[in-house]
Simulated assay, not measured.
Amino acid sequence: MIEVEHLSKTYGSTSGIQDVTFSVEAGEILGFLGPNGAGKTTTMRILAGYLPASSGTVRIAGYDVHEQSLAVRQRIGYLPETPPLYLDMTVEGFLYFVARLKGVAAGDRHRRVKAAIERCNLQEKRRVLIRKLSKGFRQRVGIAQAIVHDPPVIILDEPTVGLDPRQIIDVRNLIKSLADSHTIVLSTHILPEVSMTCNRVAIINRGQIIATGTPDSLEANLAGGAGYEIETEGDSAAAQQLIKMLPSVRSVESISTTETNRYVLRVVSQPTTEPGPDIVAVLVGMGLKIYEMRRTRASLEDVFLELTMEEKPLESESGVGRGGFLNPPVQESGVGSGE
């Protein structure tokens, strides 16, 4: 549904984004994740036809954004970070106005506006002036204007920024419900939004994609990811030595506890391995008591921090990038990103 290939945007001699490549299948919610200034908004604006690219191509629903801009705009709904609202119009009046601007046939406008209001749960606010709405309801109106012409693709730039926890949950549930009939690109730097809303993730840093995959695959591939924490007692050094010899174990460390003679063994496993039964066999064989054993795994926050702070390339689910790895990030521009 969306194909982005080698997309770049420069401002004079400064690079905003460089060689951005990703795709989104029909019905997917792609979380476009990155720190402030990473190039998220620049990419979203290019996808929406709001900003021209310096090089590269974007195809949405089979149409080239640069060559067939009007056809693309008819097939996308775009919500920028600040919703484009006319505050002195009522919700219903504004949506009729937007529907007319977006070419919805006169005989179909009532149905489309009614559907957008119901989908965004705005029935009780439809005759209220937009300036009297809370930020959460304004965000709903912003999403309603993006879907009033029933586009196959929706592009949402930071849709939950500035909302309170209740409003975030409401908007999150709304976005998930839209995936039934729309393909969605969701730009954000809020990690829980990605984990709870998106099917796949693309992480951008310093203007370049550094990882793509499902949240689970990114967490599984992170170095130092999954493993176990085992609370036990006895000979700590000997237990560490024997567990470290297991082929499925990458590393093991001992952490003291407040309980006398007890300690916690923190074990990190090799990727795609399951050392749990072997660890238990070692400890039982040594005659050690096991008070607690719990599985640990890297979170999406761990992935994000490792990739954007330490700048380590991570192999993607599709091997995107040169040599099977994603390309290293380029120098951060800090210019024209809109973030």
Rank of each mutant, 00 (worst) to 15 (best):
M1N: 07
E3Y: 08
H6V: 11
Y11F: 14
S13M: 11
S15M: 07
I17T: 12
I17R: 11
I29C: 08
L30P: 09
G34Y: 02
P35R: 02
G37P: 12
T41R: 00
T42H: 07
M44I: 04
G49V: 06
A53E: 06
S54R: 09
T57K: 09
T57Y: 00
Y63D: 05
V65K: 07
E67Y: 10
S69C: 07
L70H: 10
R73Q: 15
R75D: 01
R75Q: 08
T82S: 04
D88A: 05
M89D: 01
E92G: 05
E92W: 03
G93A: 07
V98H: 06
V98R: 13
A99P: 10
K102P: 00
V104L: 11
D108R: 14
R119Q: 09
E124F: 04
L129D: 02
L133N: 09
Q139L: 07
R140E: 15
G142N: 05
A144H: 02
Q145P: 01
Q145K: 15
Q145T: 12
I147Y: 08
P151D: 13
V153H: 11
L156Y: 10
D157S: 05
R166M: 15
Q167S: 15
D170R: 06
D170T: 15
D170Y: 07
V171I: 12
R172C: 12
L178F: 00
A179I: 13
A179P: 03
S181Q: 13
L191W: 09
V194H: 08
S195H: 15
C198K: 05
I203G: 02
S217N: 12
S217I: 08
S217C: 11
E219F: 06
E219Y: 09
E219N: 03
N221V: 13
I230T: 03
E233N: 02
S236C: 02
Q240G: 12
P247F: 01
P247E: 14
S248Y: 01
R250H: 15
S254P: 02
I255P: 08
I255S: 06
E259F: 08
Y263L: 00
L265W: 02
E274K: 03
E274H: 10
P275N: 15
D278K: 14
I279C: 11
L283G: 08
G287P: 01
G287Q: 07
Y291I: 02
R294P: 07
R294F: 06
R297N: 11
R297L: 03
L307W: 13
M309V: 15
E310A: 14
S316Q: 08
S318K: 10
R322M: 13
N327R: 13
S333Y: 05
G334P: 13
G338R: 15
